[in-house]
Design a protein around this nucleic acid. Structure first.
Lengths: 352, 352
DNA sequence: ATGGGCAAGTAACGCGCGTTACTTATCTGG
DNA sequence: CCAGATAAGTAACGCGCGTTACTTGCCCAT
C-alpha cells in the first residue's frame, strides 16, 4: 500500500530512524500528541481529526517506535529473559507463544548444560548477567531434563521461574512435569489392556524422573491389587543400546509362561532398543509384548514401527505456564505454589 | 565476595537501578570519567588511581550497565534478530555461539513455518516488525529444511542473511548446505565399500535436497564409470513408513543376485523404515545390505541398531557462518557470494 | 461582562548513557 | 619567568520517548 501511494516518502524516510518528531512535524502537531495517540491513552483529549492525521503521518513515514528508548523512558522493558540450553525447543516454543500473547518479548540466552553436574556456571552466569543488562523484567530457567539446578545469585534480583527443573538451594517457584501421575497412567493403560506381569526398564534410579515414574507405576499396580516385582525392574543406560540390553535380560530370564507380557520403558530411547530385542526374538508388538514409553520424543515415538504408545512430557505447556507464572510474579502477585506440577498426557499409538 | 565485604550496600543498592551517576558519586568523580573507564577508551586520560577507584565503586555498588540506554546513546544495539521456527535448534545454537563470540546478542522471534507453502506470513511479518522495533542491526532467517522462502519486505531495511533457505524473489545472501557434494560423498562411500548396485530411496523429487543429493549421487557413479539406473530410484514419503514401503518395493523386485547391495536413503527417517524392511527379510546390515542416510538426525541415526552411517547437515556451521556473514554486511563489507555452500560431512557409523 | 469549566493540545523534564568540547592543573623547554 | 604542551578531568548536549504540568481557546451559567 505504501508502495503504491507514497513510494518515495516511504522508501526514503525508512532509511534512517524516523522518529516521533518527524511524525509530529509531518502531521503539524506536537510530539506529545503523537505519543498520546500511539499509546492509546484513554484520558487523552485529542480530536478524532488530528488523531487520524497523526495515524496517516505514521503510515506515510513508515514510523516504527524505538523499543529501547521506550523502555528507557517508561522504565519497563516488556522483556523476559530465558536461559536455556538451545535444545529445550518445545519449552521455548510454549514460552514464546505465551509471551507473544502477553505482548512480551523473550530474550533467549544460551546455557551450557552439557555437564549437568559440575556447575560450569561460567556461561550461565554470563548469560544471566547479559539478560539483566537488558533490563529484563523477569527470568526463566529451562532445563532439558527434570533435575535440580543452582541458579546464579544475580537471578534473584528479578522475579524468576524455573521450568523443567527446580531450585536445589532455595525457594524459587518451578514448573515440573508430574512424573508420578505419568508413571501411573502408563501402567494403568497396560493394566487396562489386560497385562498383569509388567517389566520395567528403569533409568538411573536417582534422578527425579525415575523416582516419580516408578512411584506412579507402583501406585497403579497397588490400585489393581498387584505389587511391583523388584525382579522385573531392570536399570539400563538411557540409550537405545541400554534399552536393548535391559530388554534382553528381562526377556531371556523367564520361561515363556512367566515372561512379562508388557514392558514399561521409562524413556522412548530405551523403548527403541527394546523394540529390537523383541523383534529379534521373533515376538510381535503389541501381540506378544506390549511396549509403552515415556517422553514422547517425536522423532522416535512417531516413527517406530509399530508407532510407540508413550507418555508425553508437556514441554510446551510448561513453557507457557512458566511465562504465566512469571507474569503473575512481575505483577506483584504472590506465588501460588513453590512447585507446579503439569500433567503428562498418554499418547495412544500402536504398541499396546 | 560482595556478600562478605559489603553486604548491605550490595544488597540494598542492587534493588533498583544503580546508575553511572551513583558510581560517580561513590567514587567522587564525574559521570564522564566513569563512562570513559567502563568503555575502555584508549585515548582517555584517566589516572590509574581514579581508574581503580571507579572500578571499586562499580564492584561495591553492583553497577550494571543499561543496555537500552547505551543503545540509544550510541546508536547501535549489538543485536541481531533471528526469525525462525523454534525447531531450527542447531542453527540457533551455531548462530548463538558465534554471536556470543562477537559480543552480539541474538534476539529470537518465532516464525510459523508450519505451512511452508502458502505464506502464512502473518506471524513472520509481525516478528520481523518487532525485531526492527528493537533496532536490531541485522536479520537472519532460518528454515528447518532447505527451500526457497519469501522474506517480508521490511527485512530489506537492514542487512539480512538467509540460513538453510534462499530468497525466492531477490538477491539476499544465503547459506545453504551443499546437497550435491553430500550426495556424492554418500555414494562414494558405498562405492568404496565395493557396492556396485545401489538403490536410492528418494524424497519428493522437486525439493532442493532431493535434486542436489541425487545429482551428487549421479556424479559419483559417473566417476566410477557407472550409471544411475532409474529403476533403482524409488520415491517415498519422507517418513519411516515411506522408507519402509520404498525399501520393500526395491528389495522384493529383484531375484537375490540382482538385488542392490546398498541403499542410499535420502533422509534418516526413511532409513529407519528401510532398516525394518531389511531386518524383516532376515537380511543383515551391513552384511547383506548396506544403508547410508542423510541429515544425521541424532535421535535416529545414533540410536538405530546398527548405528546409521549418514551425511550430516551442517546446521551449527551454517548458523555460525550466517552470523559471520551478517557481521561482514553490517560492517559495510560487500557480500562474498549470493549463496554460500557449506559442506555436509560424512559420519561413519556402522551401517556400511 | 465575567468567571468557571472543559476540550484540545503543548512545553519541558528526565530516563541512563556516549560523546564532544571545554577547563584546570602540572610539567617542559627556552 | 613565561609560553605552550600535556595530563586529568568535567559540563553539557542529545539519543527517542513517556509523562506531568501547564496553556489556550471556547462555551455556558451567573
Amino acid at each position: 500500500m505504501a508502495k503504491t501511494t507514497t513510494p518515495n516518502q516511504a522508501g526514503a524516510a525508512r532509511q534512517r530512524g524516523v522518529t516521533m518528531n518527524d511524525v509530529a512535524k509531518h502531521a503539524g502537531v506536537s510530539r506529545t500528541a503523537v505519543s498520546f495517540v500511539l499509546s492509546n491513552r484513554e484520558n487523552a483529549s485529542i480530536s478524532e481529526e488530528t488523531r487520524t492525521r497523526i495515524n496517516e503521518a505514521v503510515q506515510a513515514l513508515g514510523y516504527r517506535p524505538n523499543a529501547g528508548a521506550r523502555a528507557l523512558a517508561s522504565q519497563r522493558s516488556d522483556w523476559y529473559g530465558i536461559v536455556t540450553a538451545p535444545f529445550a525447543v518445545d519449552i521455548i516454543k510454549g514460552a514464546q507463544d505465551q509471551a507473544w500473547l502477553d505482548r512480551k518479548f523473550l530474550l533467549i540466552a544460551p546455557s551450557d548444560q552439557a555437564d549437568a553436574v559440575g556447575p560450569n556456571q561460567g556461561l550461565e552466569d554470563a548469560a544471566t548477567e547479559k539478560l539483566l543488562e537488558q533490563r529484563v523484567e523477569g527470568l526463566l530457567y529451562a532445563a532439558t531434563f527434570h533435575r535440580g539446578v543452582h541458579v546464579p545469585e544475580s537471578a534473584k534480583e528479578v522475579p524468576t521461574v524455573l521450568i523443567n527443573c527446580f531450585d536445589a538451594d532455595g525457594k524459587l517457584p518451578s514448573i515440573v512435569p508430574d512424573e508420578r501421575a505419568g508413571g501411573r497412567i502408563a501402567v494403568e493403560r497396560l493394566l487396562q489392556a489386560g497385562h498383569r506381569r509388567i517389566g520395567v526398564i528403569n533409568l538411573d534410579p536417582a534422578i527425579p524422573a525415575a523416582i516419580g515414574r516408578l512411584e506412579g507405576a507402583r501406585e497403579a499396580l497397588a490400585d489393581a491389587g498387584l505389587e511391583l516385582d523388584p525382579e522385573l525392574v531392570v536399570p539400563g543406560y538411557a540409550t537405545a543400546d541400554g534399552g536393548y540390553e535391559a530388554a534382553c535380560r528381562i526377556l531371556d530370564r523367564y520361561p515363556q509362561e512367566d515372561r512379562p507380557t508388557a514392558l514399561f520403558c521409562l524413556n522412548d530411547r530405551m523403548a527403541m532398543g527394546a523394540y529390537d530385542a523383541i523383534k529379534e526374538r521373533g515376538l510381535t508388538i503389541p501381540g506378544d509384548i506390549a511396549v509403552i514409553g515415556f517422553d514422547n520424543q517425536e522423532l522416535i515415538a512417531a516413527y517406530l514401527r509399530p508407532k510407540l504408545t508413550t507418555v508425553a512430557l508437556p514441554f510446551e505447556k510448561m513453557g507457557a505456564l512458566g511465562v504465566q507464572t512469571l507474569a503473575a510474579l512481575t505483577a506483584g502477585q504472590p506465588i501460588i505454589a513453590d512447585q507446579q506440577l503439569v500433567g503428562c498426557p498418554l499418547l495412544e499409538r500402536s504398541s499396546v
